[in-house]
């Protein structure tokens, strides 16, 4: 459950960053012109809301919700530091986050 929350939250933050004109190029590159990726920020807010919803429904006495709030600076820091020093890192984290979301129901 926490894995899905973390993965979705990262993807959401990544999409929000990719939706900013200054960061679109280092994060998406040529893919920014792809029709499906025209409005990354919308996906970003939706993914964040979805991960928040999962955290709310986790039914573990609020622990997942605390984790959700704690993960925001962690995910954001990976993207912010990556954008300043090594954009490949936040990009490489995208498939990792996707894998986390996909594997979460199996664990």
């Amino acid at each position: 459950m926490t894995m899905a929350v973390a993965g979705l939250l990262y993807l959401g933050m990544f999409a929000l960053a990719a939706g900013m004109s200054r960061h679109a190029d280092p994060l998406l590159g040529a893919r920014a012109r792809h029709a499906a990726l025209r409005h990354p920020a919308r996906y970003g807010w939706a993914l964040l809301a979805f991960s928040f919803l999962i955290a709310c429904l986790a039914g573990d006495g609020g622990r997942a919700l605390v984790l959700w709030f704690g993960l925001i600076p962690f995910a954001s820091a990976i993207i912010l530091l990556g954008l300043s020093y090594r954009p490949a890192v936040p990009r490489a984290m995208v498939p990792v986050a996707m894998l986390m979301v996909l594997l979460a129901p199996l664990i």
């Binding site: 984790l67 704690g70 962690f74």
Partner: peptide, 16 residues
């Protein structure tokens, strides 16, 4: 109450 992951996130938040 925090699990080990949440504890490290508290540490990160505090350090920030």
């Amino acid at each position: 109450f925090a699990s080990i992951a949440t504890r490290w996130l508290y540490f990160l938040g505090g350090a920030m």
